[in-house]
C-alpha cells in the first residue's frame, strides 16, 4: 500500500467511519486526568508520567482492534518503515485527525521520531509554575503508552517516549519510537 493511498484511507476513515465528539470535551477530560494525577501523586511527576503511560497502554491494547476493524487492514506491514507510515497517516488521523511527520530515522531503520505540529490534547494548557513540572512532566505521555500497547498486540515490542514538548518551552513536540524486537510466538508467520 503506497503512502498516498494510506493518507487517503486515513482521511476516508476519519470522515466516514468515525463518530465525532467535541474537541473541547476531549481536551478538558484529558486535562483533568493529568491535573488530578498530579494532585494525587503530590507532584511526583515521574510517577505521573508512568501512570499516564500505563493508562495509555491499556487504551492501546483495545484501540488496535478498533483501528484494524475500521481501517480494514488485512496485510501486515512489510517492515518498520511501513508501520511508521501507517501509524502516522492512518492511526493518528483516524483518532485525533492529525498527521504527525516522520523524521530522524536511525541507520538500522529501527528508530524514528514523530513530530507533532499540533496536539489536541494540549490545547490551552500551561504547565504549573512550580519549577519541577517544566522539567519533569511529559503532559501527553498517554500517547506513548497507546502506541506501545497497540504495537504489542501486533507482535512488536517498542519503546515510545517524548524527547521534547512545546509545553516545556522546546521548539517542537517530538516522540521517539524505538523497535526493541518482533515478538515471535510459537508459530512464526513467515518461514524464517
Amino acid at each position: 500500500m503506497s503512502s498516498t493511498s494510506r493518507a487517503r484511507l486515513g482521511e476516508e476513515v476519519w470522515k466516514l467511519r468515525t463518530d465525532k465528539i467535541n474537541a473541547e470535551l476531549v481536551t478538558l477530560t484529558y486535562g483533568s486526568v493529568v491535573a488530578q494525577l498530579c494532585k494525587d501523586l503530590d507532584g511526583d511527576y515521574a510517577e505521573v508520567n508512568k501512570q499516564l503511560d500505563k493508562m495509555g497502554y491499556n487504551i492501546g491494547l483495545r484501540l488496535i482492534e478498533d483501528f484494524l476493524a475500521k481501517s480494514n487492514m488485512q496485510q501486515k506491514c512489510a517492515n518498520f518503515r511501513d508501520t511508521a507510515d501507517v501509524i502516522s497517516k492512518v492511526g493518528f488521523k483516524m483518532f485525533l485527525n492529525i498527521t504527525p511527520t516522520i523524521v530522524n530515522w536511525s541507520s538500522d531503520n529501527k528508530q524514528f521520531s514523530l513530530l507533532f505540529d499540533e496536539n489536541p490534547l494540549a490545547d490551552f494548557v500551561e504547565l504549573p509554575d512550580d519549577g519541577k513540572a517544566q522539567s519533569d512532566l511529559w503532559y501527553s505521555n498517554m500517547l506513548c503508552g497507546v502506541i506501545r500497547g497497540a504495537l504489542e498486540m501486533v507482535q512488536m515490542s517498542v519503546d515510545a517516549h517524548f524527547v521534547s514538548d512545546v509545553l516545556r518551552g522546546n521548539d517542537t513536540t517530538e516522540m521517539r519510537i524505538n523497535l526493541i524486537r518482533y515478538i515471535e510466538d510459537e508459530m512464526p508467520q513467515d518461514d524464517e
Binding site: R62, E65, D66, L68, A69, K70, N72
Partner: peptide
Amino acid sequence: VRRVYELYADYVMKNPFYQI
C-alpha cells in the same frame, strides 16, 4: 465476518472492564 469484527471492536474491546 467484517461486521462481527467491528461489533467485537466496539462492544467487547471498548468496555474497560473486559479482560483481554
